[in-house]
Design a protein around this nucleic acid. Structure first.
Length: 281
DNA sequence: AATAGCCCCAACCGCATGAGG
DNA sequence: ACCTCATGCGGTTGGGGCTAT
């Protein structure tokens, strides 16, 4: 006990939360919400710092949290998204309703990483095409060649005009999509040309939908998504990535947006401006 | 049954960012 | 422009449960 870096309080408890503390926090948040986390401990009668309360609520107590094992679909999605955005756990979590960044991070560090390592070792040890121990995510990497293709695929041919996707992040997703988010980090702009198609399409299949939905006509977007879902992306991303029809649809949809890349940078993910409308002026 | 080692995951820490004064 | 404070994020830690011996 003693000094706490985040709040300068002397009498803050640390470590695991007791059921009584959980109950106090739940009762307070349920009744009053959490306008200011730094005020929550005192008002809820907890000897914790606000940061600790926030973390406990977000990662464990909030009612919409989803617990238990990750499904194979979630696992595939995590892998696909990680291919694109790397260790941006909060971002990945925004595509898995009810899952927290912490949970996904732990999951990745303990389990998926191990599996991929194991798979890589197996591939390098022999020429066998199957990846043992990776069975229920096999559709993503059905062979070592395919794994290599996923990891090292050259960018697809450039379309006739620059086009972007908007990946809408966690929490205030809808507001970010329409340009009124207070945090620019809530919305990342990608150029699909710099990503492999399978990764993009995989990510696109996850809610909140990427991209075009932020700007294009909602009915067109819905139709595009329906087509994508009918093609069963979750189970056959390789087929997706090689489907000229789907890819043409995506390109066509993006081109219809008539978005100009003001920055002129085609190869790196961008932080979107806090107001997306600024891009089109 | 005891215990040593491993691993998972809840929680913490430090940093980045943005709002407001 | 600068400072302070609150929040959110990713990296890291360590307690406790599990497993092997």
């Amino acid at each position: 006990m003693g000094h706490h870096s985040c709040c300068n309080q002397q009498k803050v408890k640390r470590g695991l939360w007791s059921p009584e503390e959980d109950e106090k926090l739940i009762r307070y948040i349920t009744a009053h919400g959490y306008g200011c986390w730094s005020e929550v401990p005192e008002k809820a009668g907890l000897q914790r710092c606000g940061k600790s309360c926030r973390l406990r609520w977000i990662n464990y107590l909030r009612p919409d949290i989803r617990r238990g094992r990750f499904t194979p679909e979630e696992e595939k999605l995590i892998i696909s998204l990680h291919e694109i955005v790397g260790n941006r756990w909060a971002h990945i979590a925004s595509h898995l309703p009810g899952r927290t960044d912490n949970e996904i991070k732990n999951y990745w560090n303990s389990w998926i990483k191990k599996k991929i390592h194991k798979s890589t070792m197996n591939v390098s040890k022999s020429a066998q095409s199957s990846i043992s121990g990776y069975d229920h995510v096999q559709p993503l990497f059905a062979s070592s060649d395919q794994l290599d293709a996923m990891l090292f695929v050259p960018p697809p041919p450039l379309p006739p005009s620059p086009l972007f996707m908007f990946d809408v992040g966690a929490g205030d997703t809808a507001t970010a999509a329409y340009g009124s988010s207070s945090r620019s980090s809530a919305c990342t702009m990608w150029n699909p040309c710099s990503q492999d198609q399978a990764s993009i399409v995989n990510a696109m299949a996850a809610p909140p939908f990427l991209a075009f939905g932020a700007c294009m006509d909602s009915s067109n977007f819905a139709a595009l998504v329906d087509d994508c879902m009918e093609s069963n992306i979750g189970d056959a991303s390789s087929e997706w990535s090689s489907s000229p029809l789907i890819w043409e649809q995506i390109q066509g949809a993006a081109i219809n947006l008539d978005i100009i890349n003001a920055a002129g940078d085609h190869h790196q993910p961008h932080q979107a401006p806090s107001n997306i409308d600024d891009m089109f002026t």
